[in-house]
Design a protein around this nucleic acid. Structure first.
Length: 634
RNA sequence: GCCGGUGUAGCUCAGUUGGCUAGAGCAGCUGAUUUGUAAUCAGCAGGCCACGGGUUCGAAUCCUGUCACCGGCUCCA
């Protein structure tokens, strides 16, 4: 029979040949690297018999599909091992994920990280037995019998479309409802490791029971596995919580409260630099600054709808002379009140009001995470009031502004989502549709690729979110752009049009960095603590070789300070080597050694954190070069 | 909030099956050294063993409650 290959060519094979035999016909190397196949575009096992005219592709271990097959099979072996060690275990699901795999179990007893080694050993034993993965399509009754005693599996089985066959995979003693494809046999599983055990709700719903999830990863070779584990270790060193302590940027104090960071001088300085840049950029981009108080009467939150739709994230009211006040979880109502303080003309629109507005939100204790998830944070917030005909341009303007900001901070990779109407929300369908359409159109216009995040909008409108990844690859939502027809209505916000009648403006809520806390947390991990010159809290440290060089060091520091550079002098009585070591640990961009030679020549010996020893340079040249680099935000 | 884990000096960690006055390195302080590209030497000081209850002749160690943190889940900027 004739089989088509991905390059368009054909090969001739005896009838009933399998995908593996096709691979072998193409080449023995390919057959060796093959893990699975695609038949007419559908993933399939290598053992799948082919039919006349099928087009096939071979999935090898170095492709992302191949890794997925490998890891999914590893999940099956994990489940087999757990079943053998913990009889009576009920199986949840066990998919391959971005960097590995997991399997969810309902175990007869609690297990912890200490049990992982034992389970891993059992997995190795099962893999060594090299049993083939056998695929079988069954009828419903037979599948029910095979999965008897597995309530979660039966639940999944009963939800399959009735016309679809149930596919059952068997490997050694283990049987699972599974689409596949799988490895030819378990011996192909060479390099794997179980990483952690965690809780996970059945089907991701907190109303369901909590299962035990075991995470692991697998690679085609031990070398790749080791590399991956090294990468994880490396990522730990970029952790902003660790660097925050090492670089003396911030801490979170138990007695102050969970999720309430305290900024140390160096952290506050980084933040100040970002804030200054942010304010200047906003003033240059047609925004005005506003400021509002941190608490407001509960009436305001009733009008805005937060009291009804956002209360679970808000702190309890406090009593002030019999009146209830609430710490603000958002800035929008305050800005609306400024708008409404007088009549607005259509000529004023669009109005763009920005504020680094601190908000407080109740976050459940388990979700707090360093600076990335806190209970009090400062949003780089702004609200744009505009006419409907200005809406699209305004959104495009915001998108371009965001891209500029992110680029300035060295973020060139981010994910874009369009979040649609959630269950708990206010406003008419029509408004939601118009708002969503406006966001879509602006995204297309800006040429950004995005995914839809259904039901993830805010209660008053849909939004565009942009997420940045941390050192461990976890995505954090930073940028948000929200279109809102509803709050203007609830507050009866108006402007007087050309026709001398009142009209309703549309609001855009937007935060470009998201919050300074989260953004700086991501920034620390992004730069691994080694901030670029313009952001570094200390930009240069002078290292006198001996005490007699202190005067010259002070002169040099003064010269650099004239360029508005942030300079320190190391007055310690340590050796030069130790001073350098300390400055390197602090990740100071410029270390400037000054001794007799430098003093005589009016130079400094430059060592940068990025490049190491660069030799002596005239102080004047260095001052100019550093000033230029700060100016250009290199 | 839920599941699992962890909590000893500012930081990183030791601390046997419950048993001497809880140790070390780094950081800090003091003194000596005046040093040339990642650690000069010596001394000193530093602990309610997260917090509260309990078991015991005796608890950092065992039990229990609380809090915080870590990895996830759910939720979110």
């Amino acid at each position: 029979m004739q089989i088509k290959l991905p390059d368009g060519s054909q090969i001739e094979l005896p009838g009933g040949s399998t995908a593996l035999e096709a691979a072998a016909k193409i080449g023995s190397r390919l057959a060796k690297a093959a893990l699975a196949a695609t038949v007419n575009g559908q993933p399939a096992d290598l053992s799948r018999p082919l039919q006349e005219g099928d087009s096939i592709g071979i999935i090898t271990e170095d492709s992302s599909e191949g890794l997925k097959v490998l890891r999914h099979s590893a999940a099956h072996v994990l489940a087999d091992a757990v079943l053998r060690l913990f009889p009576g275990t009920k199986l949840g699901i066990g998919p391959a994920i971005a960097d590995g795999f997991y399997y969810d179990f309902q175990l007869p007893e609690a297990i912890g990280d200490a049990d992982l080694a034992r389970i891993e050993d059992k997995m190795r034993e099962i893999a060594a037995a090299a049993s083939p993965f056998v695929r079988r399509e069954t009828g419903r009754e037979e599948a029910e019998e095979l999965l008897a005693g597995q309530p979660f599996k039966l639940e999944l089985l009963r939800e399959l479309p009735p016309d679809e066959p149930a596919i059952i995979y068997t490997n050694d003693e283990f049987t699972d409802l599974c689409r596949g494809p799988h490895l030819p046999d378990a011996a192909r599983l060479k390099a794997f490791k179980l990483l952690s055990v965690a809780g996970a709700y059945w089907r991701g719903d907190e109303k369901n029971e909590m299962l035990t999830r075991i995470y692991g990863t697998a690679f085609p070779s031990h070398k790749q596995l080791e590399e991956h584990l090294m990468k994880l270790k490396e990522a730990e060193r970029r952790d902003h919580r660790l660097l925050g302590r090492q670089l003396d940027l911030f801490h979170i104090d138990e007695e102050v409260g969970a999720g309430l960071p305290l900024w140390h001088p160096k952290g506050a300085l980084v933040r100040k630099v970002i804030e200054d840049f942010w304010r200047d950029a906003h003033l240059a981009n047609g925004y005005d600054m506003v400021m509002i108080p941190h608490i407001a009467s509960v009436d305001l939150w009733k009008t805005s709808g937060h009291w009804d739709f956002y209360r679970e994230n808000m702190y309890s009211p406090m009593d002030i002379e019999g009146q209830e006040y609430i710490v603000k979880p958002m800035n929008c109502p305050g800005h609306i009140k400024i708008y409404k303080n007088r009549t607005r003309s259509y000529r004023e629109l669009p109005i763009r009001w920005a504020e680094l507005g601190t908000v407080y939100r109740y976050e459940r204790s388990g979700v707090l995470h360093g600076l990335l998830r806190v209970r009090g944070f400062t949003q780089d917030d702004a609200h744009i009031f505009c006419r409907e005909d200005q809406l699209e341009d305004e959104i495009v303007g915001v998108i371009n502004f965001v891209l500029f900001m992110l680029r300035t901070f060295g973020f060139n990779e981010y994910e874009v989502y369009l979040s649609t109407r959630p269950e708990k929300s206010v406003g008419s369908d029509e408004h939601w549709e118009r708002a969503t359409a406006a966001l879509e159109k602006a995204l297309d216009k800006a040429g950004l690729k995005y995914e839809i995040d259904p039901g993830e909008g805010v209660f008053y409108g849909p939004k565009i979110d942009m997420k940045i990844r941390d050192a461990l690859g976890r995505a954090w939502q930073c940028t948000t752009i929200q279109v809102d027809f509803n709050l203007p209505e609830r507050f009866d916000v108006t402007y007087v049009g050309e026709d001398n009648r009142e009209h309703r403006p549309i609001m855009i809520h937007r935060a470009l960095l998201g919050s300074l806390e989260r953004f700086i947390g991501c920034l620390i991990e992004h730069y691994a603590g080694a901030f670029p010159l313009w952001l570094a809290p200390v930009q240069a440290v002078l290292l006198p070789v001996a005490d007699r060089h202190l005067d010259y060091a002070e002169q040099a520091a003064t010269r650099l300070t004239r360029e508005k550079l942030r300079v320190e002098i190391d007055y310690s009585k340590e050796s030069v080597g130790k001073k350098i070591r300390n400055a390197e640990f602090d990740k100071v961009p410029y270390m400037l050694v000054v001794g007799d030679k430098e003093e005589d020549a009016g130079t400094v010996s430059v060592r940068t954190h990025a490049e190491g020893d660069l030799g002596a340079q005239p102080l004047e040249d260095l001052a100019a070069e550093m000033a230029r680099r700060v100016e250009e935000k290199e």
